[in-house]
Amino acid sequence: MKRIIDIVLLVSASLLTVSCRISDGFSSRHNPEGLRTYTYSLMNSMLDSPLQVMDLMTEIDVYLRLPDAEKMKEEYREMRENLKNLDLLSLKYIGAGQIDTDGKSLFEVGSRWCFVEDGYFRYSASWRIYPGHKDRLVITCVGENEWEIEEDGNGDMLRMHVTGTQSEAVAGKLDYAVTCSGLVAPDEDGYSAEFSTDGMLWLNSVDDTYDDPYCYRCYTGDFYVRIFSGGAEKDWCRMISGPDGTLSYETNL
């Protein structure tokens, strides 16, 4: 009898090991790795995504100016299926959003196109989505193959100057030289950010093996982020993309 009870107690004691640590949880992200991840993500949403929109707008512009017979070619099938006229000046690209043109070509100096994202932008999983908010991008042609891109959304701000040059790698496509600045609005804890670029180039590639698998183009140059807490600068991080496509970072941490 005593032995049986001992066995039962032993099993009970063993069960106490079940009351255990089932996960290690997470650790602080306030470290160089956290800053690098945030900087990269911000570059993705503030540069890569608007430039994808820019590409789509130029493709739409080229398509709209084609003769009707040209538009029926197989290479424009996706454009035919997804681009819909809403009225004389407005279009909708299914899976992207609404495009309000001013009736001018996007390559005509003084033209101004507005893009309002509607749902998930199909070209980019990194497009910034705010629940209940539609991001609005305004593209203004300020010179030959030169545009100003502006975005105001949810308190954030982006100002970008883009100069296009004919791509050496892909015929008919433009490479972009990009200069931009902007800010991320303060969050509920009072943290905000400012960002800028220095000598960034966004290049078409001859194949699908992009240097950065999360961006749809090759790019070189610096992307600089300063983070503020309650208005005082707290941290900074610089992302450096080399001509060979390598990424490196410098931070104050």
Binding site: I22, F26, H30, Y38
Partner: peptide
Amino acid sequence: NTGSLSSVYGDYSGPEYITG
């Protein structure tokens, strides 16, 4: 979400335990 400032500066969750 790694694209927000709270991902760097927000509180994080520690180890998780069950009582049985």
